[in-house]
């Protein structure tokens, strides 16, 4: 199941790249397609942030992850590099759990 997702997902992502090289530009170069493709990452990454911060199966919970994400926001405002942002979030959540301050 995971292997299927890995391989089929990869194939599709590769074909998307290849189509841009081999399909006639008139087919893809439309304002609507251009605009939607540029906006999809904004809507979906934001949805992923929300779901991965609050989601636990089908319920919404507030736990140590929220504190981790809050610290990540501060790190991003301070222009920290990607790895530092991710590490700051992980360490925050780990510390809150280790000290029993959050679940």
């Amino acid at each position: 199941m995971i292997w299927a997702a890995v391989l089929i997902g990869s194939l599709g992502c590769y074909l998307e790249k290849l189509f841009g090289f081999i399909l006639p530009p008139s087919l893809l170069d439309r304002p609507m397609i251009r605009s939607v493709a540029a906006l999809l990452p904004i809507a979906m990454l934001s949805a992923l942030v929300a779901v991965q911060t609050f989601g636990a199966g089908q319920s919404l919970v507030i736990d140590a992850r929220l504190a981790g994400v809050a610290v990540a926001v501060v790190a991003l405002l301070l222009r920290a590099p990607f790895l530092a942002v991710v590490l700051a979030a992980a360490i925050t959540a780990a510390l809150l759990r280790a000290t029993g301050l959050a679940a």
Binding site: L45, L48, V49, A50, Q52, T53, A64, R65, A67, G68, V69, A72, V73, L76, F82, V85, V86, L87, A88, A89, A90, I91, T92, A93, A94, L95, R97
Partner: peptide, 12 residues
């Protein structure tokens, strides 16, 4: 805290 690293990664 890796479960907190996931949303932080998407946010970045």
């Amino acid at each position: 805290g890796l479960d907190a690293a996931i949303p932080a990664g998407f946010l970045a």
